[in-house]
Design a protein around this nucleic acid. Structure first.
Length: 291
DNA sequence: CTTACGGCCTGGGTGC
DNA sequence: TGCACCCAGGCCGTAA
């Protein structure tokens, strides 16, 4: 599942390969995950790739018209191809003649004979061309990057909320980039139960969670992400952080810290994995009803 | 406004 | 061999 570390790894891989390359042709297979595919085909053809960046779980492939076409466009914000990998999306670079993996639905032919390809079994991903002002509309509501947020900013965003901490970590409007794997792994490291509410966390717990989240994300980036299903990097290689998972998809196995049995429960509508001994459950759920 | 929840999208894996 | 069912992340509508 591509979350912040996986998307960061893909972005770095593409950034190492794509800047300066010109897109000579765009082709699509299925397009139900693409916003206005015709506009992408027409507009990106001939553009030069400037750079590739990650924003939360989104990839931004920044493009610009080459010199002779610039005059007609004027000086405006750079165009960017926005890509969200969903659950099973893969954005890879391949030789144009290389075998095409099943479920490959987008091809961006480059001027050096290679192709950037988008493969996505489930097609829960998304692709859209962002032009003037589109960036703010598409990304403006997202929260802070957890690796850029200060401990104070983190505390302010989590601490004032009544929602469960698991839901808050997953909420892209609170923090951008955290998904189910890294929420569960961070909560385990910080010894905090996923059903705790944001405003129930003490100063020390908040400090632990902030530190655990950053440490987990940084280590996962270093190991090039978690390959639990389809995730691969821009070169098609799997990550290794799945080998370091302490709770995610370890239901019934022993806690690495205390030996208790890892549990799984639905929290915030998502499978949540935790150690019932290390991560103490809150007293009780508050239940709201009318009278 | 905040929170919780169910449904929808898709198709590989699983279990019978 | 077939087939119903589960599940994943993001988003949206609805209700409290």
């Amino acid at each position: 599942m591509p979350e912040l570390p996986e998307v960061e790894t893909v972005a770095r891989g593409l950034q190492a390969q794509l800047p300066g390359r010109r897109i000579v042709e765009v082709r699509f297979g299925k397009t139900d995950f693409v916003v206005n595919p015709a506009a992408i085909e027409e507009h990106l053809r001939g553009q030069r790739i400037g750079g590739v960046r990650r924003f939360g779980k989104f990839l931004l492939v920044e493009c610009e018209a080459v010199a002779e076409e610039k005059a007609t466009k004027g000086a405006e914000e750079k165009d960017a191809l926005l890509v969200h990998l969903g659950m099973t999306g893969q954005l890879t670079i391949a030789a144009a003649g290389a075998p095409v993996a099943p479920h490959t639905h987008a091809f961006f032919a480059l001027d050096d004979g290679r192709e950037m390809r988008y493969t996505d079994v489930r097609r829960f991903g998304r692709m859209e061309l962002l032009r003037n002002g589109g960036r703010e509309r598409a990304l403006g509501a997202l929260g802070l990057d957890p690796l850029e947020a200060s401990e104070r900013e983190f505390s302010e965003r989590i601490g004032g909320r009544h929602a469960r901490v698991k839901a808050l970590l997953l909420d892209q409007h609170v923090l951008r980039g955290v998904g189910n794997i890294y929420a569960d792994e961070s909560l385990w490291r910080a010894k905090i139960h996923p059903m705790r509410t944001g405003n129930s966390l003490g100063r020390e717990e908040m400090r632990r969670l902030y530190g655990a989240l950053q440490a987990t994300l940084r280590e996962a980036i270093r190991l090039r992400g978690s390959s639990v299903s389809d995730y691969v990097d821009a070169e098609g290689a799997r990550g290794e952080f799945q080998l370091r998972h302490r709770v995610y998809q370890r239901e019934g196995k022993k806690c690495f810290r205390c030996g208790a049995t890892i549990h799984r429960a639905i929290v915030a509508g998502r499978s949540s994995h935790f150690c019932p001994r290390c991560q103490r459950a809150p007293r009780r759920r508050r239940i709201r009803s009318k009278n």
